[in-house]
Design a protein around this nucleic acid. Sequence first.
DNA 1: CCTTGACCTTGCCGCAGCGTCAGGGTTTCT
DNA 2: AGAAACCCTGACGCTGCGGCAAGGTCAAGG
Lengths: 250, 250
Amino acid sequence: MRIGEIAALVGVTSRAIRHYHHIGLLPEPGRRTNGYRAYSVRHAVLLARIRRLTELGLGLDEVRDVVADDAGRELVEVLGELDADLARQEEEIGERRRRLALLMAGPVNGREPVPPALAELLGATPATDSPTATKDREHLALLDGAEGADEIFGALRPMAEDPSVLELYERLDALATASPDDPRIAPLAADLVAAVPAGVLDAIPSGLPSGLPAGSGFAEALLADYAPAQAEVVRRMMAGVAARLDGAGR
Amino acid sequence: MRIGEIAALVGVTSRAIRHYHHIGLLPEPGRRTNGYRAYSVRHAVLLARIRRLTELGLGLDEVRDVVADDAGRELVEVLGELDADLARQEEEIGERRRRLALLMAGPVNGREPVPPALAELLGATPATDSPTATKDREHLALLDGAEGADEIFGALRPMAEDPSVLELYERLDALATASPDDPRIAPLAADLVAAVPAGVLDAIPSGLPSGLPAGSGFAEALLADYAPAQAEVVRRMMAGVAARLDGAGR
DNA sequence: CCTTGACCTTGCCGCAGCGTCAGGGTTTCT
DNA sequence: AGAAACCCTGACGCTGCGGCAAGGTCAAGG
């Protein structure tokens, strides 16, 4: 048989067969005088074995191990770990589909893929187009994957549901073009600190170890994201929160 | 922030970030005087978005579409087809796992991955170490994927369960070193033709269209796999079977 | 006889999403 | 001052082939 014939017989492409030759998975057959590969039924049998194994999802080198090793023992072993691998993948896919379903049904309906706990939080907040509110929510999304993130989101709910928080955002907005020594800064920072629910402090992991604003330049970068007067507010607010943390036995 | 910092913050590797820069998914930030990339919180927010999308299983170019397009419409769309894709993958994996389970529990316990119908057939055949029987089974495995394969396997069961078929294999074995004009050839061929169950003939697709032994060199290759006298038997047997097919209105 | 079309040959690039060197500089801590 | 821990660019590696280029070969038809 020529390569196209055996390919059609077994149900693979001739390109794949040449590939198998190239990587030494299938032995090269003899050649006809014109250089064409001349396949025998033995090759077809081997190739069919290879096809069935790859269809099961084995990699080509695993197939090589199984085919080369005359001991049939290898195969059960490989098959076992293959099944475990497939089970893991199935689980992963299921997890992704679950998150997808949550996303598409959720309150953030398709606009932004956020973790479920944050989606719940954002769904509870009143709609606003305040720039700093928007920014704040983006920053919250950065907590995704950090240590106590879900707890923090949960603890923030009372604050988010309180309509008076909108007023705080507006006061922050108003500082967009203000000078860093604007007299409105200090009282706003104090009000912000006071507005943070006590539960949030409990949810902050005690050491802030490596996850987020460790010794990294995150704090500077965060401040740089605000106008000067706003940055000053944020700076003081963080100091105030730290003080509250300190006051409560860390 | 430097690249390692933002990477730790968002939870990706710095290599991945540079990759995103390279393919234009994430804009290059400004540089410090020493050439280090200097990231802002905006980058972190964008990067976190990217991470969440890739974790859902989107490809990087799909992520680019979603991130670039301000219209949120794109996302639902992409998410929809992503879910369909995942469902398909899940189904595929389930199918593979089902076949794997069959394999590992089946009678061919791990020695050879054959299609279920053939596994059933082989399980029903008496054990033998006849070389031609072994060869025959290998050839049967080549039918995997052909048109009426499952039906043929089913129709072969009565033949396979008949212990007298072992005697036929032995008579074939005995011809391994015989001459092609051995007198045992003709009667063996006749007995073989007679042993083929009528159901098998019905199961053979009427035209033998493209699948198997069409105009291809398969027949020659098959005969070349046997010793001369054996090949002669096979040749006559095939002729006999063809005649039976012809006799029965094809 | 010549052409056409369906085969065959080798060889190399491309794919997704980075990991992993190699071969440098910088900053920082001790 | 030296070592550790960062950063930089650039390039190859991985999987399982698909696709293309630039040809040879062969059977059938005009």
